[in-house]
Design a protein around this nucleic acid. Sequence first.
DNA 1: AATTAAATTTAGGTTCGTCTAAAAATTAAT
DNA 2: ATTAATTTTTAGACGAACCTAAATTTAATT
Lengths: 227, 227
Amino acid sequence: MYFCINLYKDMTRSEENYIKTIFHLGNKGTEAVATNAIAELMETKPSSVTDMVKKLSEKDLVNYKRYQGVSLTELGTKTALGIIRKHRLWEVFLVDKLDFSWDEVHEVAEQLEHIKSDKLIDKLDALLNYPKFDPHGDPIPDKNGAFKHGDRKLLSELPVESKGICVGVKDSSTAFLKFLDKNKIALGDEITILEKEEFDSSFYIKIGNRREHISNQIASNLYIKIS
Amino acid sequence: MYFCINLYKDMTRSEENYIKTIFHLGNKGTEAVATNAIAELMETKPSSVTDMVKKLSEKDLVNYKRYQGVSLTELGTKTALGIIRKHRLWEVFLVDKLDFSWDEVHEVAEQLEHIKSDKLIDKLDALLNYPKFDPHGDPIPDKNGAFKHGDRKLLSELPVESKGICVGVKDSSTAFLKFLDKNKIALGDEITILEKEEFDSSFYIKIGNRREHISNQIASNLYIKIS
DNA sequence: AATTAAATTTAGGTTCGTCTAAAAATTAAT
DNA sequence: ATTAATTTTTAGACGAACCTAAATTTAATT
């Protein structure tokens, strides 16, 4: 007698996108997410979200009680992690093998993440040498859905004189990534906080050998790992 | 004043599959294809085909007159070649970079061929070193849709004592490809026709240093390029 | 040429994922 | 604690892509 431990294999693209969104909005699916929040992020209408959420609930992918928001079930969480794993592996592929820049990968990875083939993903993982992080510093879940960041923190939350390595971005919009490129701030760079400007909450930092002045908006979107 | 020379970028997966099928069935889209033939190959119903064909006709991708079959317009042909290019490049990727065997690639390539990104395909082409043929020996159209086989012929159509290289398969079903693997017949092998058995139209061939006896069904699915 | 058979199309229906507009529940503000 | 504002859900509709069953056209056979 077998129990089915497999994930849903026959999900539609749309269902997968909802699951992914609920995961991202609800602290990895653990917290209940509002219908409106989902609708806004997915650029759809709240009524559409309600419809879909009911369907996902039927399939035991989400927990749902009317007017109380949605969270992921265990099955839903695993499904989300599978999709995120695919998305991030494809991003690494695009940057490492096809010379895409880190601000170009998202769109294409959004398509590639829905390709269904376990073998494809395992082999891709091997080709890329089992990467642990995607081009934006976000961790790649392993086959079982396990992953963790090191103990990274936002630059904006660190005290003066902190020193560490830039390991990720919180905002991975094209605009922000291009800004970082222009200002020669990249993952792997060593950063020291020299001074905090109380007036506008901006920061003076040392990056490599340069001294830079960055706004709070920038500082609160850069992840640093203390060394 | 510009004329639009671009291909349809906003086609659905289903539309793309119909276009591809019409291309394959109708001698590269040039000859009219029957509704029933399309339905059978796509495992759908003739009435569904009629519906879709009308839609494609609206978009000027096919020529269609009721009861008279369908053929591709120039736009439709270019679209088909774009999809086939993608399909075959992905097949090469799967075999060359991810160690898939040639009988495993079709299914996955069927999904990957619908990914929309010109840059992705150009870069993939470069990564693979601009291959001219896919793993089954089928030619890969270039960016402009141009391609040709060399002057390959089916083994079954060659006279005794012909000598050449095995360059492709006509039937690329899993069953046939696995049969070839089992019998150690691969693309690139040198083949000489030793004798033709009139009784059952089978062939005695020399392949590498071995002597093999192959049925007509095998012979009429192997492409040979005379050297 | 008339009849039968086969292929194709029409008509009407279904599911999926979306929408708008209106109703209901929850939350915030007086 | 009412009322007002917001969020969420229901009800009903629509396009895409499919289906079945019936009608129509073309092709094949007598």
